[in-house]
Design a protein around this nucleic acid. Structure first.
Length: 744
DNA sequence: AAGATAGTCGTTTTT
DNA sequence: CGACTATCTT
């Protein structure tokens, strides 16, 4: 392909980013401004024009999908496969480094990756051993603590326990958990990154090798990097000053997972010679949608500052619909989708986005009733489903009997008479003799158990051995099939009545297909050549590791949750959270549940920083829309079993009012007289029924002092108001008890 | 040990 | 309301 073709069809800013000189660059790419385009074209440009060897390029993304897409697009740009380039997620790259240099990293040769679920289980077990009351110390919180520390690059020894009980306790768990991981050769997601970072810090020759090799670094979605990811990049980049990062501070929505927008600022400090390029021309949305997005996001302070624009049409106004309740809201959305379809459009070009997964149910029921095809993204992805994880656990045990996590998972799944008591016994014996549970169980099957359970345990051991026997000659898909059949999982789920069991069986069948289509060569999108491997090994001196196909498949399952399962090509309405919609676009978009308390979520109201993140999330949602955008909310919403009355989201009123058109239902449905709220009145003068309080009312509380009523929910005795106190921040108070005094 | 019933609690989740 | 756990019953 000719040089000019790489730059053709790019605008000036994009061209500047793509064809700029070597050296570091920060590309601030607004939504829909051609971020991925710039990244892929830049790489193609470097290879073709600057003579950069693909072998010296490292490109990092956050999702496997993005990595695969990037490679594909570069290859089609250059019209040839590119060998030697590393393209992958932070996690998969770290994983690969650790596999290659397991010794230097201080890992066991066949270390296993713990996914979120494995990790939680392990932490629970550890906390149990530490005799911590599960009520007082929820395991989820401990997991969160551990991961946050790791995201910050902190080991237990780096953390001061400053006699705070919360930290002290969690630190204790962290230590014990780390020890358990060490013993069992297990590595969680955060650990992959942390280890990879330490690997380089503790190994200057190894680091030097990779610094020599990867002279050109590129990072996608840079605003989502956390501390350890940035530190890792920073070390690799060294002072060579040739790293290009692409991101959008306005789309940073993973702060709660440790992502640091500040990394953008830090980047410009650490690489003072870097160029900053802004991509502000949007090719996705209509003018009105962009104006709405801009209006919204300018409410945030401390932005790096971008204004999206388009040379296209203004398009339609943004529609705002007030549903009587969430069912009416869903009904209205479906009506619009039907009309959309009647107008000759495809279902898959429409998407309903919401803040939290719980909202999908009502929508799903409504879609089901009206027989519209739909697909819900999110919730549990393929490899995270219980039935899949069970099947995988059998395979893991076939691969190595010492996999305790797998052993525990399936020793009594399906139920075979080995209860909690027995498992506890096995665990105790294993710990005291410092052997795996498999070994302990083998010993106990010989002696030391009541007849019935001894039989059960012996049968389980026999089953696994038999499975190995029968799968020895089988290829991967056959192996999976045999496991699913003979383990009893199939029969077990056949007995489960209802659609659920049916779905599980289908998933297990799908697992066989996944095994059939699994290609280990796709596994690392890195596509290295032999020379690269060899020289890397020479530096470190690790033994080359040959993983069996099954092991590779199991790693694949841990690292790739199964994004592309199902048929994405089917023509159906797309349902997902706004988080999972990031990076996607749809001609027709609904943002459902635009209500205070839901969106912005009430948990995010207390801190201004978190509220801003909610606003960015809304910005992401709005900018998904290409042609038409609907905002909907429900005046009454049944949540957790009781009715709530939320006022429309502040985000609605932050969109310039002239861009919004209030719509009514197209069909005449009987609905109770609604206290319809005009756009102009949103946020003002809404009375909290039967209390004499208004939203916006100033109040005084005996203990918390002065404040403003900002929200309410429930009714009668249950009614609660949210008050933003001048000194105490925001609190929810029961009206019945709070004794609020109104002031004017 | 397994199945049934009674509490509990309630964001987002790239890997 | 409904998913997930803890506790009770057979």
């Amino acid at each position: 392909m000719a040089v000019s073709n790489i730059l053709e069809s790019l605008n000036e800013a994009q061209r500047d980013a793509v064809a700029g000189p070597m050296g570091s660059a920060l590309v601030l790419a607004g939504a829909g401004s051609g971020k991925t385009r710039v990244l892929t074209h830049r790489i193609a440009w470097l290879i073709q024009t600057e003579g950069v060897s693909p072998y010296s390029i490292l490109a990092v993304t956050f999702t496997n999908k993005a990595a695969a897409e990037m490679r594909g697009r570069i290859e089609s740009l250059l019209a040839m496969p590119i060998r030697g380039m590393w393209v992958g997620t932070f996690h998969s790259i770290a994983h690969r480094l650790l596999r290659m240099h397991w010794q230097e990293a201080g890992l066991q040769q066949n270390f296993q990756i713990l996914d979120a679920d494995d990790q939680l289980r392990l932490v629970k077990r550890v906390m149990n051993i530490l005799n911590l009351d599960e009520k007082k110390w929820p395991a989820r919180q401990a997991v969160w603590f551990i991961n946050s520390q790791k995201d910050e690059g902190l080991r237990p020894k780096n953390i001061e326990d400053n006699s705070d009980l919360y930290i002290k306790t969690h630190l204790q768990v962290y230590r014990a958990y780390e020890e358990a991981c060490e013993r069992g050769g297990m590595v969680d997601f955060a650990e992959l990154l942390l280890r990879a970072h330490e690997l380089w810090l503790n190994n200057s020759s190894l680091l030097q090798h990779y610094k020599d090799r990867f002279s050109t670094l590129l990072v996608d979605e840079f605003q989502d990097t956390n501390t350890i990811q940035y530190a890792w990049l920073r070390v690799l980049a060294g002072d060579r000053d040739n790293i290009t990062v692409v991101g959008d501070d306005d789309q940073s929505i993973y702060g709660w997972r440790g992502a640091k927008i500040e990394n953008i600022q830090r980047f410009t400090n650490d690489f003072p010679n870097s160029r900053t390029i802004r991509l502000e021309q949007n090719y996705r949305s209509t003018g009105n949608i962009l104006k709405a997005a801009n209006g919204l996001i300018t409410q945030n302070v401390g932005r790096l500052g971008k204004q999206l624009w388009t040379d296209g049409n203004d398009g339609d106004l943004i529609k705002l619909y007030a549903g009587y309740n969430e069912i009416d809201e869903a009904r209205y959305i479906i009506e619009c989708v039907k009309q959309w379809s009647r107008d000759g459009n495809r279902f898959c070009d429409s998407a309903v986005l919401y803040r939290s997964n719980a909202q999908s149910r009502v929508l799903e029921e409504a879609l089901l009733r009206s027989r519209l095809p739909y697909r819900i993204y999110g919730g549990h992805r393929f490899f995270e489903r219980a039935e899949i994880r069970n099947a995988l656990a059998y395979m893991r045990l076939l691969e190595g009997r010492d996999a305790d996590a797998a052993f525990e998972r399936i020793v009594n799944t399906p139920t075979r008479g080995i209860g909690d008591r027995t498992v506890e016994e096995i665990r105790k014996l294993a710990r005291s003799k410092n052997v795996s549970m498999w070994r302990a169980a083998s010993d106990m099957a010989r002696a030391g158990l009541p007849g019935r359970t001894r039989n059960a345990v012996a049968n389980f051991l026999k089953l696994i051995n038999l499975l190995e026997e029968e799968t020895r000659e089988a290829d991967l898909p056959d192996l999976v099939e045999i496991v699913v059949e003979q383990s009893g999982l199939k029969a077990y789920y056949e007995k489960e009545r209802g659609e659920r069991g049916q779905a599980r069986l289908e998933n297990l069948a799908e697992l066989v297909t996944a095994a059939r289509t699994f290609d280990p060569d796709d596994e690392f999108v890195f596509d290295d050549d032999a020379f690269g491997e060899q020289s890397a090994e020479q530096v470190g001196g690790s033994e080359p590791v040959e993983l069996s196909l099954l092991e590779q498949f199991l790693n694949h399952a841990a690292l790739e949750a199964g994004e592309g399962q199902g048929d994405p090509n089917q023509d159906c309405v797309q349902l997902m959270t706004m988080h999972s919609a990031k990076g996607l676009e749809f001609p027709l978009v609904f943002l459902a549940g635009m209500e205070e308390g839901l969106f912005p979520h009430r948990m995010s109201l207390e801190e201004p920083g978190r509220l801003e993140e909610e606003r960015r999330l809304c910005y992401v949602g709005v900018t998904r829309a290409m042609k038409q955008l609907y905002l909907t909310y429900a005046e009454t919403r049944r949540m957790h079993g009781s009715d709530t009355y939320n006022r429309p989201s502040r985000f609605v009123s932050e969109i310039p009012v002239e861009l919004i058109q209030e719509v009514r239902s197209q069909s005449l449905t009987v609905r109770p007289a609604s206290r319809s709220i005009r756009v102009s009145s949103i946020g003002k003068d809404v009375e909290v029924e039967g209390t004499g309080l208004r939203l916006g009312q100033n109040v005084i509380h005996a203990k918390f002092g002065e404040g403003v009523v900002v929200n309410y929910e429930g009714e009668g005795k249950q009614a609660r108001v949210q008050v933003n106190f001048v000194n105490e921040g925001s609190k929810w108070l029961m009206i019945a008890y709070a004794k609020l005094e109104s002031v004017s």
